[in-house]
Design a protein around this nucleic acid. Structure first.
Lengths: 151, 151
DNA sequence: TTCACTGCAAACCTTTTGCAATTCT
DNA sequence: AGAATTGCAAAAGGTTTGCAGTGAA
């Protein structure tokens, strides 16, 4: 069980990106975050920890991380969140890293990620009824997470 | 078969909103649009038609229309689009006006809207596997619309 | 006539760009 | 050393706010 942080650093190193202080700090913040964060929120968290980073750098780092599929964006807010490490075994190959379904709690703003939802039927329905050739989709659920459900 | 424009004006009048020139113009633009538009794009289209409207007014009008469920936003871009008039007969009551599924064409940027996709199974799967109580969702499909499919 | 609504000015927040200085490897 | 990356300054873009003036009902 590798941590997200270790995984991300490994991916970046592997692809010849430099492991700089700002990059490490952003990844540490993302690693610890339980909800999605904006570029500014990430910058603030880093600054508060003592060694400030420029906002522009945060933007550029997030861009890099997104290109390497280490984070993805919540459509509704534009905030980012680390990509969960996938359990290869129970994910169909074709949907790979690109099919994330988010569970966004309206109480605590926490975000969970679900892979492997079976969307085949729905996609088929769209293709049949609308004659639209689907090659990707984004799906976000809103509601209450386990902790915020009362009773 | 009422037009979107007539429908929207009726709803607003009914709820004691004033039918002003800027509101009429924004609704006309939305009525004719075949893809989603940003506030700026709407302002530009109106300006080009001869009688300019202030950007701030466009923002406020869009806010009003959104509150009254006459437009909704495409999550990915933040642009807005008229809500399609629903065919009451084949839509389950509970999902009513709030369950839109968008088909976004990556070729022509056109947007279609689909109601009545059967998401029950997927929602059930989420609730069961993640213990998350779903009360809403947003779903956007990306791909090729009928016209842009070759062959 | 009255009050909702608009237009204008200005502020605010977010994101992007160019370039010189820094720092990983 | 050399190239990638950062920080700074500045601009660009999008959105919001306050207030006085306008116009729909």
């Amino acid at each position: 069980m590798t941590s997200y942080l270790a995984h991300a650093l490994h991916v970046l190193k592997d692809r010849k990106y430099r492991i700089t202080q700002p990059r490490k700090r952003v990844l540490e913040i993302l690693n610890d975050a339980h909800s999605a964060l904006s570029a500014y929120e990430i910058k603030d968290l880093i600054d508060r920890a003592g060694e400030p980073v420029d906002t522009v750098s945060v933007y550029r780092i997030l861009e890099c991380l997104e290109e390497n599929h280490l984070i993805h964006r919540v459509l509704q807010t534009g905030k980012v969140r680390k990509c969960q490490l996938e359990d290869e075994s129970d994910c169909r190959r074709e949907e790979h890293n690109h099919c994330h379904h988010l569970l966004i709690c309206r109480q605590c703003s926490g975000i969970e990620e679900v892979h492997c939802l079976n969307m085949a039927q729905v996609v088929t329905q769209v293709q049949r009824e609308s004659d639209f050739q689907v090659d990707a989709h984004h799906l976000e659920f809103f509601g209450l997470c386990r902790k915020c459900q009362v009773g």
